[in-house]
Nucleic acid binder design. Structure first.
Lengths: 202, 202
DNA sequence: GTCTATAAGATGATAGAC
DNA sequence: GTCTATCATCTTATAGAC
């Protein structure tokens, strides 16, 4: 995957392909994603896609990188002063209380891609890395809270993993069931879990 | 879908088709599941499948019912005397600490099917129902524990939803990442969550 | 109930012109 | 870089024999 400028991960043509893939994915879902459909969204021929990527799999792996980048950008947060706020911020980014259309779509695409991680090792590694990064971010915030005396002296890893599993489960339920109310309730419940586990005045 | 006997949901022929579908799913994954592959596993022709089911979708919806049945049977538990044990039992059934091959396979198939719930409404309704049933089961155990004075006077729905989200998230992570250790840790952490939230001597 | 044969179309991928 | 045309293969599904 050649780049036009060393600073940019994606050149113009490839970015357009990634965006067309994103649209095709939203319109048809992962199961019905084909080179033809991506080409249609791109308004170019299929052969044009094969000029940029060797195979469908090649394109898809590139797209996964693109999507994970987007997702990570979405959750990256300036480390504020208050660990309480930072934790709430990360959770809100990953699992918005009331997701707007764009957030809903991105999450839907991520869940669709993720289902491929079951059988595709390249996908699996990306999601392993993504989950690990989220846990580490959460861990660091908790550790800082402990150091600052804001949080109780708990095991940051244990709490971070628990938070992450709950977030993933809720995101998953949102994408695959009609239990939106339950999802919102779990989101609130997660805050109260943090309250009772971490805050000193619990 | 006609039945041989009114008590049985599946007759012999259909059960064999469901089992062949299950094997095909394990061997190739949902993305590569075709009528041909199911027929191969069944050791019959494709036309034989179309005698029993009108379309691929028809067969798949039937299979989902079959798989959900299996899964529900797996988690159904005789209501024992101790709510603590019952809760632990349900969690262990849904999220075994160290899953054997059969449990791992069933969970993998469920996650594969579930990814279809994103775009298929019939699938979505089944998983909505399944999740709801699990929450209700958990709720009832918690309520009984409260009534018996074994658990603190918490909101059973809130705790049940939280447990379910955490279980789903961990199951999901197990199927789509290489973070098996994290999954095992979360499973343990879930028990300690229950401890601190529910048990009176917490 | 199950078979073979086949239809009708979509899919991933390539060749060769421009 | 992008196009049209094409290929081999696979897909779901059906017709008709047994």
């Amino acid at each position: 995957m050649a780049t036009d400028s060393p600073d940019e991960k994606w050149n113009t043509a490839e970015t357009e392909i990634m965006q067309a893939t994103y649209r095709a994915l939203l319109a048809h879902g992962y199961a019905d994603l084909s080179i033809s459909r991506i080409a249609d969204e791109l308004d170019k021929s299929k052969a044009a896609l094969y000029y940029h990527y060797d195979s469908k799999d090649d394109l898809l792996v590139a797209f996964l990188g693109f999507a994970v980048d987007r997702f990570e950008t979405t959750i990256s947060t300036e480390t504020g002063a208050d660990p309480n706020d930072d934790l709430e911020h990360v959770i809100e980014k990953l699992l918005p209380l009331r997701p707007d259309e764009e957030q809903r779509q991105l999450q839907e695409v991520m869940v669709g891609l993720r289902s491929q991680a079951m059988t595709n090792e390249a996908f699996r590694e990306q999601f392993t890395r993504l989950d690990e990064q989220i846990v580490i971010t959460t861990e660091e915030i908790i550790q800082r809270g402990i150091d600052d005396g804001v949080f109780r002296d708990v095991d940051p890893t244990r709490i971070a993993e628990h938070i992450q599993a709950t977030i993933n489960g809720t995101m998953y339920a949102r994408a695959t069931t009609n239990r939106e109310n339950a999802a919102a309730a779990t989101r609130v419940s997660l805050s109260s879990y943090i309250d009772s586990e971490l805050r000193r005045n619990a």
